[in-house]
Computed example of a mutant assay.
Amino acid sequence: MTLGRRNWTFAGSQRGADRAAVMLTLITTARLNDVDAKAWLADVLARIADLPASRLHELLPWEWKRLREADKPADQQAARPSRNAIIEPAAPTRVCQSCGLRRMRTL
């Protein structure tokens, strides 16, 4: 998926630009945490309405990934190559001191 280039010069409206920015932020954050953005978004959109507010943190990409890896057998975890070896982050990142995962820097 290519982010940016000339096709993002015109969003059509301010609301359209805001929506595109939100979606690109979600997708990039998932990618920076080695999460399949399509699978993560599909699961989040399917579960978010029924999840109590006290458990919404489980839908964050790094928590979602941790919970999914805990459910997999050890041999499946080792067989999947890291996506970071193929895809470079499109935005500057920082490493979270509390959990050690990469997150986008805010401007």
Results as ranks from 00 to 15, higher is better:
residue 4 G to A: 11
residue 4 G to H: 10
residue 5 R to I: 10
residue 5 R to E: 11
residue 5 R to P: 10
residue 6 R to F: 12
residue 7 N to F: 13
residue 7 N to A: 10
residue 7 N to D: 09
residue 9 T to A: 15
residue 10 F to Q: 12
residue 10 F to H: 14
residue 10 F to A: 12
residue 11 A to H: 05
residue 11 A to V: 04
residue 12 G to Y: 11
residue 13 S to G: 05
residue 13 S to N: 03
residue 13 S to R: 08
residue 14 Q to A: 14
residue 14 Q to C: 10
residue 16 G to E: 00
residue 16 G to H: 04
residue 16 G to L: 03
residue 16 G to W: 06
residue 17 A to R: 13
residue 17 A to Q: 10
residue 17 A to H: 10
residue 18 D to M: 06
residue 19 R to P: 00
residue 19 R to L: 04
residue 19 R to C: 03
residue 19 R to K: 06
residue 20 A to K: 00
residue 21 A to Q: 04
residue 21 A to M: 09
residue 22 V to W: 11
residue 22 V to P: 02
residue 23 M to N: 01
residue 23 M to P: 00
residue 24 L to R: 07
residue 24 L to N: 08
residue 26 L to S: 04
residue 26 L to T: 00
residue 27 I to D: 03
residue 29 T to P: 03
residue 31 R to Q: 03
residue 33 N to I: 02
residue 35 V to G: 07
residue 35 V to H: 01
residue 35 V to M: 04
residue 35 V to A: 04
residue 36 D to I: 02
residue 36 D to L: 08
residue 37 A to P: 00
residue 37 A to N: 00
residue 37 A to L: 01
residue 38 K to H: 08
residue 38 K to I: 01
residue 41 L to H: 04
residue 41 L to W: 08
residue 42 A to N: 13
residue 42 A to P: 07
residue 42 A to L: 15
residue 42 A to R: 15
residue 43 D to P: 02
residue 44 V to F: 15
residue 44 V to N: 02
residue 45 L to M: 12
residue 45 L to A: 05
residue 46 A to S: 09
residue 46 A to T: 06
residue 47 R to T: 00
residue 47 R to F: 01
residue 48 I to Y: 13
residue 50 D to S: 14
residue 50 D to P: 12
residue 50 D to A: 13
residue 52 P to T: 09
residue 52 P to K: 10
residue 52 P to H: 10
residue 52 P to R: 09
residue 53 A to T: 03
residue 55 R to C: 10
residue 55 R to I: 03
residue 55 R to F: 11
residue 56 L to V: 07
residue 56 L to F: 12
residue 57 H to C: 05
residue 57 H to G: 03
residue 58 E to F: 14
residue 58 E to L: 06
residue 58 E to I: 08
residue 58 E to P: 08
residue 59 L to F: 00
residue 59 L to Y: 04
residue 59 L to C: 01
residue 60 L to R: 05
residue 60 L to T: 01
residue 61 P to E: 03
residue 62 W to A: 05
residue 63 E to G: 03
residue 63 E to H: 10
residue 63 E to K: 06
residue 64 W to P: 02
residue 64 W to Q: 01
residue 64 W to K: 05
residue 65 K to L: 14
residue 66 R to Q: 11
residue 67 L to R: 14
residue 67 L to S: 12
residue 68 R to F: 13
residue 68 R to G: 11
residue 69 E to I: 03
residue 69 E to D: 15
residue 70 A to Y: 08
residue 70 A to H: 08
residue 71 D to M: 08
residue 73 P to M: 04
residue 73 P to G: 05
residue 73 P to V: 05
residue 73 P to D: 07
residue 75 D to M: 13
residue 75 D to G: 06
residue 75 D to A: 11
residue 76 Q to L: 14
residue 80 R to K: 15
residue 80 R to G: 11
residue 81 P to T: 07
residue 83 R to C: 06
residue 83 R to T: 04
residue 83 R to M: 07
residue 83 R to D: 09
residue 83 R to G: 06
residue 84 N to Q: 09
residue 85 A to N: 09
residue 87 I to W: 15
residue 87 I to A: 12
residue 88 E to M: 05
residue 88 E to F: 05
residue 88 E to G: 02
residue 88 E to R: 13
residue 88 E to I: 04
residue 89 P to K: 07
residue 89 P to R: 08
residue 89 P to N: 07
residue 89 P to V: 05
